[in-house]
Amino acid sequence: MKKSKILIGAAVLTIAGFFAIAADHIDAPAVAGGTSDITDIYAFQGEDNNNIVFVANVQGLISPADTDAAAFDENVLIEFNIDNDLDAVADLVIQATPRDGKMYFFGPIAPSQSGLNSTILSSSATMNDVDITAYGANAIVETNNGMSFFAGPRDDPFFMDFFRYGDIIAGDETMFSDPGTDTFAGTNVMSIVVELPKAMVGSGDSVNIWVESKRKQ
Protein backbone atom coordinates (compact mmCIF):
# COMPACT_ATOMS: atom_id res chain seq x y z
CA MET A 1 0.00 0.00 0.00
CA LYS A 2 2.57 2.51 1.12
CA LYS A 3 4.96 1.42 -1.56
CA SER A 4 2.38 1.69 -4.33
CA LYS A 5 1.41 5.15 -3.11
CA ILE A 6 5.02 6.22 -3.23
CA LEU A 7 5.37 4.75 -6.69
CA ILE A 8 2.27 6.56 -7.92
CA GLY A 9 3.56 9.78 -6.36
CA ALA A 10 6.88 9.33 -8.09
CA ALA A 11 5.16 8.61 -11.38
CA VAL A 12 3.04 11.77 -11.10
CA LEU A 13 6.13 13.82 -10.30
CA THR A 14 8.00 12.29 -13.20
CA ILE A 15 5.14 12.98 -15.60
CA ALA A 16 4.76 16.55 -14.33
CA GLY A 17 8.46 17.23 -14.70
CA PHE A 18 8.53 15.42 -17.98
CA PHE A 19 5.81 17.40 -19.68
CA ALA A 20 6.72 20.80 -18.32
CA ILE A 21 9.44 21.15 -20.88
CA ALA A 22 9.74 22.25 -24.50
CA ALA A 23 9.75 25.78 -25.85
CA ASP A 24 6.55 26.82 -24.13
CA HIS A 25 4.40 23.82 -25.01
CA ILE A 26 2.21 22.74 -22.09
CA ASP A 27 4.34 24.96 -19.88
CA ALA A 28 2.00 25.49 -16.94
CA PRO A 29 -0.92 23.68 -15.28
CA ALA A 30 -3.56 26.31 -16.11
CA VAL A 31 -2.98 26.19 -19.86
CA ALA A 32 -1.41 22.79 -20.58
CA GLY A 33 -2.99 21.23 -23.62
CA GLY A 34 -5.76 23.87 -23.84
CA THR A 35 -6.73 26.24 -26.63
CA SER A 36 -4.86 29.16 -25.05
CA ASP A 37 -1.56 27.30 -24.67
CA ILE A 38 1.15 29.17 -26.57
CA THR A 39 3.80 26.77 -27.88
CA ASP A 40 6.25 29.20 -29.47
CA ILE A 41 6.68 32.68 -30.79
CA TYR A 42 9.06 33.83 -33.52
CA ALA A 43 10.13 37.27 -34.75
CA PHE A 44 12.35 37.70 -37.78
CA GLN A 45 13.06 39.88 -40.80
CA GLY A 46 10.78 39.12 -43.74
CA GLU A 47 11.68 38.09 -47.26
CA ASP A 48 11.26 41.80 -47.95
CA ASN A 49 13.96 43.23 -45.68
CA ASN A 50 11.78 46.24 -44.88
CA ASN A 51 9.33 43.94 -43.13
CA ILE A 52 9.24 42.12 -39.80
CA VAL A 53 7.39 38.81 -39.27
CA PHE A 54 5.67 37.72 -36.07
CA VAL A 55 4.54 34.13 -35.50
CA ALA A 56 2.42 32.83 -32.61
CA ASN A 57 1.78 29.10 -32.39
CA VAL A 58 -0.80 27.57 -30.05
CA GLN A 59 -2.07 24.08 -29.23
CA GLY A 60 1.07 21.96 -29.60
CA LEU A 61 1.61 18.29 -30.29
CA ILE A 62 -1.36 17.90 -32.65
CA SER A 63 -1.05 14.58 -34.46
CA PRO A 64 -1.79 14.48 -38.21
CA ALA A 65 -4.92 12.42 -37.43
CA ASP A 66 -6.23 15.14 -35.12
CA THR A 67 -5.25 18.16 -37.23
CA ASP A 68 -8.38 18.31 -39.39
CA ALA A 69 -10.51 18.65 -36.26
CA ALA A 70 -8.18 21.16 -34.54
CA ALA A 71 -9.54 24.69 -34.37
CA PHE A 72 -8.80 28.10 -32.95
CA ASP A 73 -11.00 29.00 -29.97
CA GLU A 74 -13.39 31.95 -30.48
CA ASN A 75 -13.11 32.73 -26.76
CA VAL A 76 -9.33 33.16 -26.96
CA LEU A 77 -7.60 36.40 -27.91
CA ILE A 78 -3.98 36.24 -29.05
CA GLU A 79 -2.07 39.49 -28.52
CA PHE A 80 1.30 40.35 -30.03
CA ASN A 81 2.83 42.93 -27.68
CA ILE A 82 5.40 45.35 -29.07
CA ASP A 83 7.59 47.46 -26.78
CA ASN A 84 9.44 49.99 -28.92
CA ASP A 85 11.18 51.98 -26.17
CA LEU A 86 12.66 48.92 -24.42
CA ASP A 87 11.00 49.28 -21.01
CA ALA A 88 9.16 45.92 -21.24
CA VAL A 89 5.81 47.72 -21.35
CA ALA A 90 3.69 47.27 -24.48
CA ASP A 91 3.45 50.38 -26.69
CA LEU A 92 1.55 48.62 -29.48
CA VAL A 93 -0.54 45.48 -29.75
CA ILE A 94 -1.76 43.39 -32.65
CA GLN A 95 -4.84 41.44 -31.58
CA ALA A 96 -5.99 38.25 -33.32
CA THR A 97 -9.16 36.30 -32.63
CA PRO A 98 -11.25 33.92 -34.78
CA ARG A 99 -14.93 34.23 -35.69
CA ASP A 100 -16.82 31.84 -37.97
CA GLY A 101 -13.91 30.57 -40.07
CA LYS A 102 -11.97 33.83 -40.26
CA MET A 103 -9.11 35.17 -38.16
CA TYR A 104 -9.61 38.88 -37.41
CA PHE A 105 -6.67 41.18 -36.73
CA PHE A 106 -6.74 44.58 -35.01
CA GLY A 107 -3.78 46.95 -34.97
CA PRO A 108 -1.00 47.65 -34.51
CA ILE A 109 -2.50 50.11 -32.07
CA ALA A 110 -1.66 51.42 -28.59
CA PRO A 111 -3.33 49.16 -25.99
CA SER A 112 -6.27 50.66 -24.14
CA GLN A 113 -4.89 49.44 -20.81
CA SER A 114 -1.73 47.80 -19.57
CA GLY A 115 -1.89 44.70 -17.45
CA LEU A 116 -3.55 41.34 -17.64
CA ASN A 117 -6.98 42.21 -19.05
CA SER A 118 -7.82 43.38 -22.55
CA THR A 119 -10.75 44.46 -24.60
CA ILE A 120 -10.71 43.97 -28.35
CA LEU A 121 -10.10 47.33 -30.00
CA SER A 122 -12.58 46.63 -32.79
CA SER A 123 -13.97 50.17 -32.88
CA SER A 124 -10.65 52.03 -33.00
CA ALA A 125 -8.03 49.78 -34.63
CA THR A 126 -7.44 48.94 -38.26
CA MET A 127 -9.20 45.62 -38.88
CA ASN A 128 -8.03 42.92 -41.24
CA ASP A 129 -9.17 39.34 -41.66
CA VAL A 130 -8.10 36.17 -43.42
CA ASP A 131 -9.98 32.92 -44.01
CA ILE A 132 -8.54 30.24 -41.75
CA THR A 133 -6.74 27.75 -43.98
CA ALA A 134 -8.20 24.26 -43.75
CA TYR A 135 -5.98 21.23 -43.15
CA GLY A 136 -4.62 20.01 -46.46
CA ALA A 137 -5.54 23.19 -48.37
CA ASN A 138 -3.08 25.65 -49.86
CA ALA A 139 -2.19 28.50 -47.51
CA ILE A 140 -4.67 31.38 -47.76
CA VAL A 141 -2.85 34.70 -47.44
CA GLU A 142 -4.49 38.11 -47.15
CA THR A 143 -2.38 41.17 -47.89
CA ASN A 144 -3.58 44.70 -47.20
CA ASN A 145 -1.65 47.99 -46.89
CA GLY A 146 1.68 46.20 -46.73
CA MET A 147 0.55 43.76 -44.04
CA SER A 148 0.12 40.01 -44.67
CA PHE A 149 -1.90 37.57 -42.61
CA PHE A 150 -2.19 33.79 -42.25
CA ALA A 151 -3.99 31.50 -39.79
CA GLY A 152 -4.26 27.73 -39.81
CA PRO A 153 -2.51 24.45 -39.03
CA ARG A 154 1.22 24.17 -39.84
CA ASP A 155 4.10 21.86 -39.03
CA ASP A 156 5.46 22.66 -35.56
CA PRO A 157 8.73 24.44 -36.39
CA PHE A 158 10.13 23.70 -32.92
CA PHE A 159 12.69 20.91 -32.56
CA MET A 160 14.28 19.39 -29.48
CA ASP A 161 15.10 16.07 -27.87
CA PHE A 162 12.40 16.68 -25.28
CA PHE A 163 12.23 13.10 -23.96
CA ARG A 164 15.95 12.95 -23.33
CA TYR A 165 15.90 16.31 -21.54
CA GLY A 166 13.14 14.93 -19.31
CA ASP A 167 15.25 11.87 -18.57
CA ILE A 168 18.21 14.07 -17.63
CA ILE A 169 16.14 16.30 -15.34
CA ALA A 170 14.59 13.20 -13.76
CA GLY A 171 18.08 11.85 -13.08
CA ASP A 172 17.64 8.83 -15.36
CA GLU A 173 20.29 9.97 -17.83
CA THR A 174 23.44 12.05 -17.44
CA MET A 175 23.80 13.43 -20.95
CA PHE A 176 22.09 13.89 -24.31
CA SER A 177 22.36 11.16 -26.91
CA ASP A 178 24.10 11.81 -30.21
CA PRO A 179 22.30 11.98 -32.54
CA GLY A 180 19.27 13.16 -30.59
CA THR A 181 15.64 12.50 -31.50
CA ASP A 182 13.31 15.39 -32.36
CA THR A 183 10.27 14.79 -30.18
CA PHE A 184 8.23 17.31 -32.21
CA ALA A 185 8.88 15.69 -35.57
CA GLY A 186 5.62 14.82 -37.28
CA THR A 187 3.42 17.06 -35.11
CA ASN A 188 1.44 20.18 -35.95
CA VAL A 189 0.40 23.44 -34.28
CA MET A 190 -2.24 26.09 -34.93
CA SER A 191 -0.32 29.02 -36.34
CA ILE A 192 -0.92 32.76 -36.70
CA VAL A 193 1.53 34.69 -38.91
CA VAL A 194 1.65 38.45 -39.44
CA GLU A 195 4.14 40.33 -41.61
CA LEU A 196 4.25 44.11 -41.60
CA PRO A 197 6.58 47.00 -42.41
CA LYS A 198 9.19 47.57 -39.71
CA ALA A 199 8.20 51.24 -39.71
CA MET A 200 4.80 50.24 -38.28
CA VAL A 201 6.32 48.72 -35.12
CA GLY A 202 9.12 51.12 -34.17
CA SER A 203 11.69 53.63 -35.33
CA GLY A 204 14.64 52.53 -33.16
CA ASP A 205 17.18 49.78 -33.73
CA SER A 206 15.10 47.09 -32.02
CA VAL A 207 11.82 46.28 -30.31
CA ASN A 208 10.87 43.78 -27.63
CA ILE A 209 8.01 41.47 -28.39
CA TRP A 210 6.01 38.87 -26.48
CA VAL A 211 2.71 37.13 -27.06
CA GLU A 212 -0.17 36.78 -24.61
CA SER A 213 -3.24 34.57 -24.79
CA LYS A 214 -6.37 35.78 -23.06
CA ARG A 215 -9.74 34.14 -22.51
CA LYS A 216 -13.14 35.84 -22.65
CA GLN A 217 -14.60 36.18 -19.16
Binding site: I120, W210, K214, Q217
Partner: peptide, 15 residues
Protein backbone atom coordinates in the same frame (compact mmCIF):
# COMPACT_ATOMS: atom_id res chain seq x y z
CA UNK B 1 -15.91 41.38 -30.21
CA UNK B 2 -17.22 42.69 -26.89
CA UNK B 3 -16.15 41.53 -23.46
CA UNK B 4 -13.09 41.41 -21.28
CA UNK B 5 -10.31 38.95 -21.99
CA UNK B 6 -8.11 37.81 -19.09
CA UNK B 7 -4.57 36.55 -19.47
CA UNK B 8 -3.76 32.82 -19.35
CA UNK B 9 -0.40 32.33 -21.09
CA UNK B 10 2.47 34.48 -22.30
CA UNK B 11 5.85 33.91 -23.90
CA UNK B 12 8.89 35.87 -25.00
CA UNK B 13 12.05 33.80 -25.30
CA UNK B 14 11.83 30.05 -25.84
CA UNK B 15 11.69 27.64 -22.91
Amino acid sequence: FTGTYAQEDQMGRPA
